[in-house]
Design a protein around this nucleic acid. Structure first.
Length: 256
DNA sequence: ATGGTCGATAGTCGA
């Protein structure tokens, strides 16, 4: 089973790139973030033509998430239980016996702002939800654009980013608290080269200069992590014309 | 160099 997460920064602009990537890599589930599409405008047909079943939760202009799955997801959820939120940032579904939660975590703008407080509140609510889901699902994946670099290895210049947004101690502690429920960063199950990132700012030629962060994650429950055979970031789409600023994060599992 | 570039949208906001 192969699962991937990709912040596409507008599915309208990136549709052909997403379809091509799906066709080449054929994941069982692709979680998308920042679709920026209302549900009425979601391009269901081109995914269906590739044999995929999309489910989605969108809003005008901002945010928006989707699961593109090889079979129809069941028990779909698009709200954080007990947390009222206008913003469409979560979608969960069960595919082939694996519970998948796809997140577009709040960016937070800057440490100390209202958006930062919202990020931490939002993440705490998601963590409570994940705790509940873990009770019911042995096989659980939580993936998405976390907008948190787990540690300094995931940052091109840790000193420059020290206590900045995406890297601050409260953000990292919140992520740690979620992972301590029983989730593993699949990427770190394997030896990895240094300087592998999943997001590069559009500005200042950050991609060309290797100035990135790894903020797109595929977390797996212990039972699933034991069967993880590979985890990687596919930087190739970042080289496309009109690329997303994010690259897909991928994890593969050998399930019976 | 305290900026830069995108996307959605129609002057700015969010990232």
């Amino acid at each position: 089973m192969k699962l991937a997460s990709w912040n596409v920064n507008s599915l309208k602009v990136r549709l052909e790139q997403v379809l091509q990537w799906l066709d080449v890599h054929r994941p069982d589930v692709l979680g998308l973030q920042e679709t920026k599409l209302i549900d009425e405008k979601f391009p269901t047909d081109p995914f269906a033509e590739l044999g995929y079943h999309p489910v989605f939760a969108g809003q005008p202009t901002y945010n928006g998430v989707a699961l593109i799955a090889s079979s129809e997801p069941t028990e779909t959820v698009t709200e954080i239980p007990g947390f009222a939120d206008e913003q469409r940032r979560v979608i969960a579904g069960t595919v082939n016996g694996v519970r998948v939660i796809n997140l577009y975590v709040v960016n937070g703008k800057a440490v100390g702002t209202d958006k930062y407080a919202y990020k931490l509140d939002w993440f705490a609510a998601v963590t409570a939800w994940v705790e509940d889901e873990l009770r019911r699902h042995d096989r659980l994946v939580v993936m998405g654009d976390f907008n948190i670099a787990p540690d300094d290895r995931d940052v091109h210049d840790p000193e420059a980013w020290r206590e900045k947004i995406l890297c601050s101690t409260p953000e990292r502690s919140a992520l740690r608290k979620m992972m301590d429920l029983g989730l593993v960063d699949t990427f770190r199950l394997f030896d990895q080269e240094e300087g592998i990132f999943s997001w590069w700012d559009y500005r200042a030629a950050a991609f060309r200069r290797g100035l990135g962060l790894r903020i797109d994650l595929v977390l797996a429950s212990k039972a699933l992590a034991d069967s993880c055979t590979k985890a990687w970031v596919d930087a190739e789409p970042r080289r496309n014309e009109r690329p997303s600023d994010h690259a897909p994060a991928v994890a593969e599992f050998d399930l019976d």
